[in-house]
Simulated scan of single mutants.
Amino acid sequence: MPGRFFLTSPIVDVARALDQGVGPVADEPARRNIAPGQELVVLTDTGLCRMRWGIIPVGRVDARGRPVMKTLINARSETVFDKSVFRGTGRAVVPVNGWYEWTGEKRRKTAWAITPKSGGLLLFAAITDCWRGPGGIEVDQIATLTCAPSADVVDIHHRMGVILEKDDIGLWLSGVQQAVTPLLRSWPAGRLQVEKAVDVDWNGP
């Protein structure tokens, strides 16, 4: 499942591919290492914007009525519509060129970069929320959805992000639950490329 993203395409190309204006993300630089807790460029039903990757579910409780304390960067697509902690969340799409996974033991891990074989963007389904803090602070935030892995990535992780087709963006952003549920599945096998990640500064952009 996505633990780090990268978006290296010029933001004007990203906007064009999504039939959007650049708007408030016009100054977005190329980024090879986007970590949880940082801002991502996302697409909502109002256009491109930035949101924090990781939902801090302040005020949300689990099925037992207990407060959820951890930051959630991913949510299981199989249960996202059932869990009370996600009730009332919105939807977004995260456009990236790919994501990273790791295999191996601690201190000997191998980093893998996963990209579309055809090039271009991967469009990850996500849910959104707004964290409200003291003094009227508001932070828009997202968590990506995960599903079972395709044959392309099953050897490196037991989960993967839900990847959408471009034609399904509008349905995901505004469709009813019954209509969007079929979108929450593994991407077809043979469409992703997995290569060792090289020359990535894991402490920087």
Rank of each mutant, 00 (worst) to 15 (best):
V139I: 14
A189I: 03
G119I: 03
A63M: 12
G98L: 09
L40H: 01
P36M: 01
R76K: 13
R60F: 07
M160R: 09
A30N: 07
V154D: 15
T115R: 15
D82G: 09
V96Y: 14
V12T: 04
V176I: 11
G170I: 01
T44Q: 07
V162H: 09
G47V: 07
W131K: 00
A63S: 13
V176Q: 14
L171F: 13
M1C: 04
L171A: 13
T89R: 04
G47Q: 12
A197C: 05
A148M: 11
S150G: 15
V41F: 01
V162R: 10
P67D: 05
R191P: 00
A126W: 06
G170S: 11
G161Q: 09
A126D: 14
D13H: 09
C130P: 00
E105I: 08
D82C: 01
D155P: 04
I34G: 00
N203Y: 15
G135N: 05
I169V: 11
A151D: 15
I34D: 02
W187V: 04
K106Q: 13
F6N: 01
V94M: 08
G120Q: 11
I156R: 02
L121W: 15
D82N: 09
V68K: 01
L48Q: 01
D27T: 04
L145P: 03
P24A: 02
S150M: 08
A151Q: 15
V58S: 10
V42S: 00
V85H: 09
T115Y: 10
V162A: 06
G120F: 05
G21M: 06
A126I: 14
M160K: 10
K83E: 15
P149A: 09
P10F: 10
A126G: 12
R66Q: 13
E105H: 13
V80T: 12
E78V: 07
D152F: 12
N203F: 15
P10C: 08
A35R: 14
